[in-house]
Amino acid sequence: MKIAVAIKRVPDMDTRFKIAPSGTAVDETGLKFDMSDFDGYAAEAALQINEKQGGGEITAISLGPDVVQETLRKALSMGLDKAVQLKADAVPFDGYAIAEALAAELKGGSYDLILFGRMAIDSSNQSVGPMVAELLGLPCISAVSQLDVSDGKTVKARRELEGAYEEVTCPLPAVVTIDEGVARPRYPSLKGIMAAKKKPLEVKPAQLGPVTATVAKMELPPERAAGRILGENADAVPELVRLLQTEAKVL
């Protein structure tokens, strides 16, 4: 199948963030970056689909400044076939502005399947995938935890709901956004890393849409007051219950 996977470069979350002097972004000094978690699942899902079907081509697309090339190379080293950077000085917070740029690139690509992460782990907007689908006029199933496209014509997917799940179908070509559960991303092999260096990575200007959603402020949530260990066995239970009643007032 001809598959596209939209991949965002995001900071590693295992860190103490600092706010940049602008007050509207996190300070990127010293942060490690990688592909967003769910985008890794999407890349893996694409690889498995084409491995099962024995053929096809997978394109990784990322919008952002030149540093996203590093993330695209990682996708290529996992086994994706080619990459496109939609070059922009910065990645806007507004998912719609991003969606217009991705849609403009994806429109002419005659992809059978376009995969997104359920959400970018930094913005947590969970919006770009379905927006792109709307802009392309394609059907979309979002946040799927199981995916089957083996008949080459239909998407059969499962979505997790609050205390329930649903099974959803739509015809291909389609947009699907990937939740956890579909596939755990593989680690690039040494061979994969070598091969990735020779794979095509095209750079094009991003045609961003209008920006109407902006970050006015970023701040760190208030630190939690230091907690305490009340005791080492069930003897501490009465004290815990007392604190839940008097201090936390949740009982």
Partner: peptide, 20 residues
């Protein structure tokens, strides 16, 4: 789950950004 599925489609139809 359903709200997050629909809201971006509505925003895209209206051609506006979304605060999620």
């Amino acid at each position: 789950a359903h709200g997050k599925d629909v809201a971006p489609r509505v925003a895209a139809k209206l051609k506006v950004g979304l605060a999620a």
